[in-house]
Amino acid sequence: MAQAIFRIWRGDSGGGEFRDYATEVTSGMVVLDVVRQIQAEQAHDLALRWNCKAGKCGSCSAEVNGMPKLMCMSRTSDLPLEKPVTVQPMKAFPLIKDLVTDVSWNYRVKKKIKPFRPRKPDEKDGTWRMAQSDVDRSMEFRKCIECFLCQDVCHVLREHRLLDEFIGPRFLVHIAALEMHPLDTENRLEDLRKEHGIGYCNITKCCTKVCPEDITITDNAIIPLKERVVDVSYDPIRRFLARYRRKASAVGLAS
């Protein structure tokens, strides 16, 4: 048992401040437990979201000591409790109140993505046949719990605020899941390049680091999509010629 200070952001879109709450932290508690304890004992109207408290719904996303995390999966024993623990809302989204942000943008983005379009059923009874190995390819992406921590940490959204031009890692993972679905016949590559702004991602892998489901977002989802976009968007012969010309002129300059 230890006394700890939790420095929690209190405020709304009009402004706010960090407020310190002294509270008892007992063994085994996660940050969500502490925040709820503060809510029950000291700040009844402290706004936060949570549902399952088991790392499966992705509701309790926040920034704990500056790191985007699920509060329910952040153990207090992993934090230096001798210093105040800061808990603040995700920065990439507009604040509603305290730890609750307006994540509705994500739902609007998803709606813009072309939905699943299966091929015709393989059998007369309307069913399909798929090999487990084909199913497995999109499984990693389907683990996503939509906590939006990857969106929060993505600098294109967080710092550059390009929310109208870039859909963010979550939805690139979503498209990867659709594109690698064994039955899907839709083509989203043109959208990826133009409307979804895949080119904005410059592979800093911050999203991969914060994913609570350990999805290898950048390497397994985004890079293969980028490769597919490049494959269809650029004529390989012209690209080869362009590279040849560049090389030739470089040689020319050197000589």
Partner: peptide, 20 residues
């Protein structure tokens, strides 16, 4: 269950490719 598959759900498979 079968119509879920038409809406994009993916289940584990049997050896002959049906829903396990």
């Amino acid at each position: 269950v079968r119509e879920l598959e038409a809406w994009g759900a993916l289940f584990d498979r049997t050896k002959d490719g049906r829903i396990l």
